[in-house]
Design a protein around this nucleic acid. Structure first.
Lengths: 104, 104
DNA sequence: TTGACATGCAACCTTTTGGTTGCCTATTAT
DNA sequence: ATAATAGGCAACCAAAAGGTTGCATGTCAA
């Protein structure tokens, strides 16, 4: 879980996920095109995304195809975000209560 | 959005959010108790959480009370995670298709 | 009113992160 | 066969992150 959060912390990596979401199965060179970054920098980002299991790769000859794996993203939603949403209304009303008594 | 992702990237900060989720409105000293970190380190984390609007504070005399704000977390779920969940099934079936043709 | 307590500020340090350049290897196309 | 193409590896670098210590300030209680 920690690796996923860390991987998502960088805007370049999130935009790589966006690119794969737009078109899945791209090669390293395709993913590097038009970016303000060298191919090697993109490689490093992709390694981090792979280690977080956000991206899966398949070698096809000399090409490496990259596929988005949406499972970890889904798990963040289920296991982490949901937890905080349950307490949401209660938290807000508590905040309101505290705000109202701040002049004591 | 970027600030929120960055703030959530650190396990110590996520555990501070957990603590506030368990009991809202804690002081800095309370939040520092039992942690493998000095109070000053906790302060720095709380500043980052505040800047990402994940935590709101209210001064009450010499104490500073910290409240969890679940809104940014909810927005990550709505604006970011949902986007990837829509393509989920399509992506998986595409992956399967690619896997099946890899021996060409 | 003064000591204790809660927090703030600043300098400093080490490790991690995000990026680069240069070169090497494997595969494909001519 | 060999040149072009796709990607991998390693050394290096600057900046950011995460933490520390030491001291200052503001507030409360005796």
């Amino acid at each position: 879980m920690d690796e996923v959060f860390k991987a998502l912390a960088d805007a370049s990596r999130r935009s790589l996920l966006d690119r794969l979401h737009a078109r899945n199965g791209q090669t390293l060179n395709e993913l590097s095109e038009g970016l303000e970054m060298t191919r090697q920098a993109v490689t490093k980002h992709l390694v981090i995304l792979e280690e977080a299991h956000l991206v899966t790769t398949i070698r096809h000859g000399r090409e490496k195809l990259h596929y988005l794996n949406p499972v970890p993203i889904h798990q963040i939603g289920e296991r982490w975000i949901r937890k905080f949403e349950r307490g949401k209304l209660a938290a807000l009303s508590e905040l309101k209560r505290q705000l109202e008594k701040r002049d004591e």
